[in-house]
């Protein structure tokens, strides 16, 4: 799927009220979230403008809510839970940001795609190694329906699963880059994503 062309920013009315802001993590290392926390005292400014309605590091809300204006999504899509959450985010969010290299390209988690083969899920390959060949006690691939999610055959970048509205690359994007992207968004503008300061990977 291609990213949306237009700038689907939070509607005009949103500018008159506090924005509903969320962050989620899928298959990543939490580094992008740590970089978000590296906004340090800018978090106070952010708190003046937005309500954090969902975030693994900054909220105890368990169900992704309706009517979210902006969501930063860290991580690639690697298992069934990631997939379900990505769909929920898309359905309930005006502006979805593909946040960090794992979301943008699948990055390091995507390296496991090299372990599969034609007709072989890369998930099975890494699981077999970890939990069957190499366990000392009770070898077996963990499976507990409803609890332990199945791995997808391949790890996918976010935009292969849902349309995304903005790419914010970096491993992780630095706090400066995050701030530079957020400031215009809070004013209903699209950030200018050009030049190495905004676009360099890694």
């Amino acid at each position: 799927m291609r990213p949306r062309a237009g700038p689907p920013l939070p509607d005009a009315g949103a500018q008159l009220r506090r924005l509903r802001f969320a962050t989620v993590w899928l298959a990543g290392c939490s580094g992008c979230h740590m970089s978000f926390l590296d906004l340090d005292e800018f978090l106070f400014d952010l708190a003046d403008r937005v309500d954090i309605v969902y975030s693994p590091v900054a909220s105890d809300i368990k169900v992704y809510p309706d009517g979210v204006d902006i969501c930063l999504v860290e991580g690639a899509v690697a298992n069934a839970d990631n997939l379900e959450l990505a769909f929920a985010v898309r359905a309930r969010t005006a502006l979805v940001v593909s946040f960090g290299d794992c979301a943008v390209t699948a990055n390091v988690p995507g390296l496991r795609n090299l372990c599969g083969g034609p007709g072989h899920s890369s998930g099975e390959a890494v699981l077999r190694r970890g939990y069957v060949e190499l366990a000392d006690t009770h070898p077996g691939i963990p499976r507990a329906p409803g609890i332990v999610p199945e791995l997808l055959e391949r790890v996918l970048p976010l935009h292969e699963v849902i349309p995304v509205d903005l790419y914010l690359p970096g491993c992780p994007p630095s706090a400066d880059r995050i701030r530079a992207a957020l400031l215009p968004l809070l004013d209903g503008q699209r950030p200018r994503m050009d030049g190495p300061a905004m676009l360099r990977f890694g």
């Binding site: 690697a78 390091v108 496991r112 090299l114 372990c115 890494v126 699981l127 507990a144 609890i147």
Partner: peptide
């Protein structure tokens, strides 16, 4: 307590 993610670093 269930941990529900796995990326498989050692293999790749």
């Amino acid at each position: 307590f269930h941990v529900v993610e796995y990326r498989g670093f050692e293999k790749f």
